[in-house]
């Protein structure tokens, strides 16, 4: 009985969201407002249990690491973001996290540039490797804006555009598949778990 009521509530909320396909309406607005509140409310106890207790409460009160009081007080400074006169205080917790960009310089250079370049520099011993090489070079030429895309150079950059369109098409196809599988999941829930029409 309890499971049936739970399923009916979930089904009602699912249909409320789907009602947006017709047009924006009070049922969708109701579900949307509820979704935002529940999602944010869901995060609070989880952050408390998984971040506040192990990294703030336990080190300070159980392990006696009073030095953790400094970052904790720095975290409290976030609150001043909404104060007109004291908003500058909220910069401190933000800039402490921003320091990691120093690591980002060599890491992004390594993972996104050097590793990709090494993978691109293969012997052109078959047609596919040659096609990948041409595609990579022409796409890079397309993103070089210091020269006007005209004449022979423009023809090369145009090849890059075609490669990107195929790449975007593949990503588009994968995204559609992922969303369709979610849709199938919701329809299976409505027809199977709620109405019992499919097993």
């Amino acid at each position: 009985m309890f499971e049936t009521i739970s399923n009916l509530i979930a089904a009602f909320l699912t249909l409320c969201i789907f009602s947006f396909l017709y047009k924006d309406n009070p049922f969708y607005k109701f579900a949307e407002a509820l979704f935002i509140g529940v999602s944010m409310g869901y995060a609070i106890p989880l952050v408390y249990e998984n971040a506040f207790l192990p990294f703030v409460y336990q080190p300070i009160f159980l392990q006696g690491k009073l030095i953790i009081l400094i970052p904790s007080l720095m975290g409290v400074l976030y609150i001043f973001r909404f104060s007109r006169n004291l908003s500058w205080l909220s910069r401190y917790p933000i800039v402490f996290g921003m320091g990691i960009v120093g690591m980002g310089v060599p890491m992004s250079m390594h993972s996104s540039v050097l590793v990709q370049m090494r993978s691109a520099m293969l012997p052109l011993d078959n047609i596919n490797t040659a096609l990948i090489f041409i595609g990579t070079v022409t796409i890079l030429l397309y993103f070089f804006f210091s020269k006007e895309h005209k004449g022979v150079y423009g023809k090369f950059t145009n090849v890059g555009v075609w490669y990107m369109m195929i790449g975007f098409g593949a990503s588009f196809g994968y995204t559609v598949m992922a969303r369709i599988s979610l849709l199938i999941g919701r329809i299976q829930f409505l027809l199977g778990d709620v109405l019992g029409l499919i097993k």
Partner: peptide
């Protein structure tokens, strides 16, 4: 498609993103 033109497109874009991230950092 996934292993040849898509790979070339992703690689070209990844190189651009990588250089952009480095410059911004």
């Amino acid at each position: 498609i996934l292993n040849v033109p898509n790979l070339a497109a992703k690689r070209g874009i990844a190189l651009g993103v990588g250089l952009g991230m480095t410059a911004t950092s």
